[in-house]
Design a binder for these strands. Structure first.
Lengths: 236, 236
DNA sequence: CTCGCGAATATGTCTATACATATTGAACCG
DNA sequence: CGGTTCAATATGTATAGACATATTCGCGAG
């Protein structure tokens, strides 16, 4: 006995295929008529599942053409600062990213967090500086799990900053952010061209895809120069 | 010609009644049979509207009993730090709120922001200190619009902190938060028992209800003592 | 008066059908 | 060859009916 209704099951299965990446953005979802045959049910039942997925933003429906996995909008996850580059250029400032260090290494076995992120594979460890209008804007330390994103081994993060690269290559992630304020340590103050002890906004974000950890990043912003904005309101 | 489909119109009208507060949490929504009669349509159409509202969390549906306006969950709006008191007690620490100043006054006509918040009425201006485990936890400066919330004139904010009071009296709000880091000025450092210049996490939040501004608050947290956590993921 | 049981009722799910509407691809014509 | 028209198609909306299921209410037995 399936306690879950059929329309929910259809919805869940498709959602799983999208979120896991098995169906990439742009992939065509089966027509309602195909799903009717596959699940042996009426069109209204399929339609209920698909309408819900469309409302949730996971798929896009086009008459006559069919339904397709949506390409996630950059700002769909509020406050994710998904793409610092996009934010800065949107403000009309010039943007640059300076890669300070990059290495491929196994997880530090003393750091349970790194071990969990790495899984069976190695990590890519990056440090870089986001520069807006010629001035340091944010310092970023990032770890990427090669188990989750093997393509990251070959990516050129000097050409495309890691945040943007991940955004383009790994859609449909979930994230948890921790935000706090810290005083700038001398070495960091120098990188950001600030006085030691200046207030910094620290954002640490962990990202998963279909339950598997993908990346962990810590970004430090000069506190008074940057406002993180988050909006909460009606879905539409 | 109504370009909007009927199920959407039903949905919008009920959503408006809920968000505006015309129907308070707990209020019984008409039965599907009543709405069928009111809109002259079939049950499936009404059901589609109601199911969507239920999924969005605006109403709660109970078989045999009917549908009711939901009471918003404290953590429905992520990162709203909706209730500092609730957060602290959830961590097992003792909580106290010390009201430092409270006055009723008209808006400062030089401050366009205050004028917009006040509308036709006065403002309540509050300053208070949140105390966790006997130590200062956050300094809060708040303005409440009496035009939007007349009951606030009579509320005792020494007994119930303004954040919690608003949460209980004004449901279904939308908010925008700006988060930054600042160094503590001497007067503020003293209130929070910190050294001058210490890094503070500054959260400024504006809140609306059905488009009308309700309150504006600025909270300062000792940066290293507090993490703001925000989660972004699957709706369910 | 209390407990248990059955009837009433509102929602939950699903079907089969119908027509509307946007969009595409192909046939057709200048 | 380029543009227009038109029919095919997939989704969008809506209906009427059916049965399932949870919950409540009231009645009757103890």
């Amino acid at each position: 006995m399936s306690a879950v209704p059929l329309h929910q099951r259809i919805r869940d299965e498709i959602e799983g295929l999208v979120r896991s990446g098995a169906w990439a953005p742009g992939h065509r979802v089966p027509f309602e008529s195909e799903l009717m045959a596959q699940y042996g049910c009426s069109r209204m039942t399929v339609n209920k599942a698909m309408s819900a997925l469309a409302e949730a933003g996971l798929i896009v429906r086009r008459r006559r053409a069919g339904s397709f996995v949506a390409r996630p909008k950059v700002h769909s996850t509020v406050l994710d600062i998904p793409d610092i580059q996009a934010e800065i250029t949107a403000r009309g400032e010039t943007y640059a990213f300076r890669l300070l260090a990059a290495e491929r290494r196994p997880a530090d076995s003393d750091d349970g967090d790194e071990v969990e992120l790495a899984g069976e594979g190695d990590l890519v460890a990056l440090r870089g500086l986001h520069i807006a209008g010629g001035r340091p804007f944010a310092l970023e330390d990032r770890l990427i799990s090669l188990a989750a994103v093997p393509e990251a081994a070959a990516a050129d993060f000097a050409a495309e900053p890691p945040g943007a690269w991940l955004l383009h290559h790994v859609p449909w992630t979930e994230a948890e952010s921790r935000i706090s304020a810290v005083g700038a340590e001398p070495a960091i103050a120098e990188l950001l061209a600030l006085d030691p002890g200046a207030a910094l906004l620290a954002v640490e974000r962990r990202t998963w895809r279909a339950g598997a950890p993908v990346t962990r990043v810590r970004q430090l912003f000069p506190g008074e120069a940057y406002d993180l904005v988050a909006r909460f309101g009606p879905a539409r």
